[in-house]
Simulated assay, not measured.
Amino acid sequence: LHTRVEAGAERDAFAYLGVAGHAALWVNGRRVGATLTGERLQPGAHVVAVPLRAGINEIVIKLSHPSGQSAAHLRFGDGEGRAIEGVLARLPPVLTWSAVSADGARALLAFDAALDPASATALVGTSIGAVGVAAARVREGGYLTLELSGLATGARVALPLIGLTGADGTPLEPGATAPIHHDGAGRVPGFAATWFADITLQKPVLSRIEPRIDTEFGGGSPHPSVPVDGFGARWTGVLVPNISGDHVFTTRSDDGVRLWIDEKPLVDNWTGHGAVDDSGTITLEAGKSYALRMEYFESGGPGMIRLSWTQPGGAPQVLDSSNIGSEPASDLFAP
């Protein structure tokens, strides 16, 4: 894991770390402290003295876990755990997905943080072979729309993102690129998710693209606009399997869930309950598109939702954007 911290002046600080697994902390290329170990993530369980230099400090946490389920939580403070004035996190925006319109004239890039609109002009004139960027526009929510030329159907390029920065001026990671693939479908990778402020799915408060359905809420919610109890969600997408045959879809939910493939109900457990698995089987054809819809509600207490599938001859795995795409909203690729 990599992040940046900006300090107004050289000073000593403390890193408050929680880890699941084993972790080592590196600051500006130098290891700080001993190996840290935790059976489960407990924020602030470890405190490490850290020297910060004036300006940008490069922070790296190296993680390992026998099961691969490593995690870390990091914040900086003084010796009493209080925030330090003049010490700010500078996280580089990370590209989460990219998509190309059906005609290949535009690309949409989604980042996990807001971008600086002025920095997008640095991409204009960029070219990779026959493919060029004619215009670039930053949109609210961390989206970047590019007008392209010369992108043939089936073409794949890795577009350099040189000069693009976050809203606070933090540059992207060195060498960052965006995969541009014109598949002719014009779909966005992932599920189209709508979150509701009620369990009857009548009061929408948030819409976004999500790469997978796999979240444990604990006592919280998926977003500040969604209440911590009494909320719901609906996901839709176009499923394209890799293999023909019987596919098993499994939900794990707390509370209610229901799932349809091409309007055929596979799971229907629309009740309040603790974490439980429900499954349904359907025969699918490789390369064919199927409409998927799943709904969920959480009525109170801890909540979780996950959608997995098992393809013929395979092992269960979380269904993600490698096999799910969303039909874009009418203005998603607008210039």
Rank of each mutant, 00 (worst) to 15 (best):
P265A: 13
S244P: 12
V267E: 00
S253Q: 05
V276D: 07
M304D: 06
W309G: 01
F249S: 00
D268K: 07
G301W: 11
G301Y: 14
I282H: 02
D255F: 03
S308Y: 01
T271R: 11
E298R: 13
F297S: 03
D246N: 14
E263P: 01
D255C: 10
R252D: 10
S299G: 08
T281N: 13
S308D: 12
M294D: 00
A286N: 13
A286F: 08
T271H: 05
G303P: 15
G287E: 11
L307H: 06
L259W: 01
K288M: 12
S244D: 05
D268M: 11
G256C: 10
T283E: 06
E285R: 09
R306W: 05
G274P: 08
G272N: 09
G301C: 10
M304G: 12
D254I: 02
G287M: 09
L266K: 00
S289R: 15
D278A: 07
D255K: 02
N242Y: 08
D268W: 11
E263V: 04
G274R: 14
I305M: 06
T283Q: 08
D278N: 12
I261K: 12
M294E: 03
L266C: 03
T283P: 01
G245K: 05
S289Q: 14
D268R: 07
R252I: 10
G301F: 15
H247G: 02
G287S: 08
W309D: 02
K264S: 06
H273P: 04
R306D: 07
V257P: 01
E263Q: 12
G274M: 12
E263N: 15
G287F: 08
Q311E: 06
T310W: 05
S253D: 08
I305N: 06
L284G: 01
V248D: 03
T283F: 12
K264P: 01
N269W: 14
A275N: 07
W309K: 05
A275L: 07
L266E: 02
